[in-house]
Amino acid sequence: MRLKPKHISLLVLFVLIVMAPLFFPSGFYYRVGALIFINAIAVTGLVILIGYAGQISLGHAGFVGIGAYSCALAPVHLGISPVFAIALGAALSAGLAWIVGRPILKLHGYYLGVATLGLGILISMVLANEAQWTGGPDGIAVPDLGLRGLLRDWGFRVSAGELWYWLAGAVLIAGAWLALNLFDSPTGRALRALHGSDVAARTMGIDVPRHKLHAFVISAVYASVSGSLLALMNRLVTPDVAGFMHSVHLVTMTVLGGVGSVLGAIFGATILTALPQVLTVFHQYEHMVLGLVMILVMIFMPDGLLPSLLKRFRGRAGK
């Protein structure tokens, strides 16, 4: 049987996730890996929104925040387990995206950018200001997921870093699988069509507002799950996860790697997450490097890193 691009992408991702630990010099890198995967989950959602449907969001960290604070607050106040808190956060994010999505997604370009930006900032402002619930700017502790204890009872001893590496890796593969399914499906084609030509898509019978909304809701759920995992891994969450800078990070990762492609976006998440972690020596210059990378990639590789590199590689192979 001939392998489809979807299966190749998933295989590459799987092999990379499984093989990477062989090259880890220390246990610290499991945490870096887990952080990369957690960001990549949110970014995969943005591939559906920005890459497929062509709609920008500068406020998706707001949904990351909802996912994260659900895991901090729901177990304490509602007495539900953290696993259900993840689902609750996803449902809340989806619900909010559903309500605000329809009016917001009527907007185009900068107007859409600034409306989503405002939405994200309002969410992060609530999280920072409602200190009696959220602990305010200092953040709040998050209950233990309990998975490590469970594994220990069964006789498996894993470090927290290892556990989160494999858990986030598994969720990422599932998320990538869903996004790749969508790409080559009736809905995915409709999204890519309205990205290419809004007018033509409408005359093809595509209900454009409905499809945009679905992409927005799906991407909000990805962001929320990413936030939940981040909170549960760090056992602490601060309003920064919902902040403007985190939104910008996520969009940059999405566009950096290659905005249409799931694998490219994961590549972008890897670079942008790993760089500051690995190059701690350059901590002082972190912002300068990030800003410079954003500018240079957009100018010289407008398709994103991975597609541009692949094109160059193919061009050379063809000669």
Binding site: G113, M288, G291, L292, I295, M298, I299
Partner: peptide, 10 residues
């Protein structure tokens, strides 16, 4: 958008 935000961060 990414370029000018990048410039701001830089």
């Amino acid at each position: 958008i990414i370029i000018t935000i990048g410039a701001a961060i830089f």
